[in-house]
Design a protein around this nucleic acid. Sequence first.
RNA 1: GCCACUUUAGCUCAGUAGGUAGAGCACAUCCUUGGUAAGGAUGAGGUCGGCGGUUCGAUUCCGCUAGGUGGCUCCA
Length: 572
Amino acid sequence: MSEVTDQMRRHSAAHLMARAVQNVFENVQVDIGPATDEGFYYDFDLPHRLSPEDFPKIEAEIARLIALDEPFVRKVVSRDECARMLAGQTYKLERLADIPEGEDISTYTVGDYVEMCRGPHVEHSKQIGVVKLRRVAGSYYRGDEHNKMLQRIYGIIARDQAEMDALLAREEEAKKRDHRRLGTELDLFHLDPEDPGQVFWHPRGWSIYVTLQDYMRRKLVKDGYQEVNTPALMPRSLWERSGHWAHYQQNMFITESEKRLFAVKPMNCPGALEIFKSRTRSYKDLPLRLAEFGHCARNEPSGTLHGIMRVRGFVQDDAHIICTEEQIEEEVAKFCRLLKDVYSDFGFDQNMKVRLSTMPEDHVGDEATWRKAEDALAKALVANGMTYAIQEGEGAFYGPKLEFKITDALDREWQCGTIQLDYQLPSAERLNAEYIGADGKKHHPVMLHRAVLGSLERFIGILIEHYAGAFPLWLAPEQVRILPISDKAAAYAQKIRAALAAAGYRVEVDSSAEKLGAKIRAATVEKVPYQIVVGPRDEAAEQISVRSRADGDLGAMKLDAFLARLAAEMKS
RNA sequence: GCCACUUUAGCUCAGUAGGUAGAGCACAUCCUUGGUAAGGAUGAGGUCGGCGGUUCGAUUCCGCUAGGUGGCUCCA
């Protein structure tokens, strides 16, 4: 007897939901309904517009079906037999046609309901547990935007009601970490409805931004990069040469001046190559690593925007490595080392996923070169002890790429770091970058596009959720808050503030008329790492009373002792 | 961009079977000078996303439009 896995239970729940929807509504066409890491979904096509108001009815029907505790019976059938069983179900019949000749076609029957399915499933419906429907969403048939949009219902399962309650409570907790909520609560940024996808950074948010950027800058300099900056607005002629005008125009903001068209840059790469081309280059200049915190604008479809994670104006910790083909592997390996180093500083090296995207059908260049490039990427990962999955055919048309993905508070994956190999842009057909080789002849270099954090906007969004707003000392917008007991301690509070500020810390004084308890509460809610309480007693003893976000009340100490503690924490 | 849902004060949300609205927090003023998670009082703040329609009258019903949310496609 095989073990009943969560995947089987979820998948079986999807079947029962499909059955329930057909029992509750008329003219239901079913497509497919797999299990996911979280729960399951099923795609339907029916005249009724599904809404969350329909959930109780459907859930009740599912509960009824589960309670029947009917067995899931597997049967291998012939193609014709299966087609007969699926009569009237056009999507299912199309799916049936997809199954290659010679492969087993199996069906699962539960009570009077039969479905074509590979399985596996639970043995009896009661093994599924409790089912709750979560949301309805649109979904293109076969994931193709040219196809009809089906109605998808997402659901989750639990072994019993207690586990379901715990699951829902965890979801509520995750929502509290949502960067959009914390961004407002902690006064980090705001988004203006009239200017979708553009971030207004408030002082506290911008402090994090600049601190992160400085951190990255130090890493880049140490790793042999040179920082550059290129124009935000570049002419149509350049974009035509780069290929963006033909392939990326829909995503570009275009503007006009004196009858010439310009575009706000969606990427920094042409700018980097312009710098490379500004004088004759030697093979001795390679690899040339040009970093740029360039502000890019992409006119993303409105439906794809999401807080500060997916925006229309953003800055990548971008860099372009211009090198020879022989240098690719070492440069990729070097990048992986840098990425690992940075991610480990945030604890992201644990839950990160790496994907290698290979040659797509629509590509330029010959297959041998592609395979060589893919190998170089894979070898660099292995050399760094990184495990990865392959995304077949998901590479860019100009070259394969590595993607490094991090998960947000609501379990959505976001691509942050990436390195992409590009044979195209430096080529004669595009921007025609050249260097003089040891043989005295001209050669085209290859280019690596790469980013460690991805966009600063997205990375900060993930950081907000990762730390639940409680940033480590070095990143915290306000590192220390001084809480004078009353006006009588105001002068002493200012003296301490000045001393901390002189030592380079971001420090504020809460001089409001509130009582100490209220001040502590405010500083705690705002997640300030250190609170310093000062009153007449401290002043007389030339001490401060320290409260840490992590360890609570630390009692009284000398300012020097506190400074030493801060310095030690900044280093770690 | 596509499908569904949604939009009331700075924030989180009530509410009106159609008769132009409330709470908590935040904010302002005053009182309180208080030693480790919310002291008290008073007050200000909204043409209920925008436009149009139905109606004697629309925040409420209908249509369009914009933003947001959840997905899909796309993507840093």
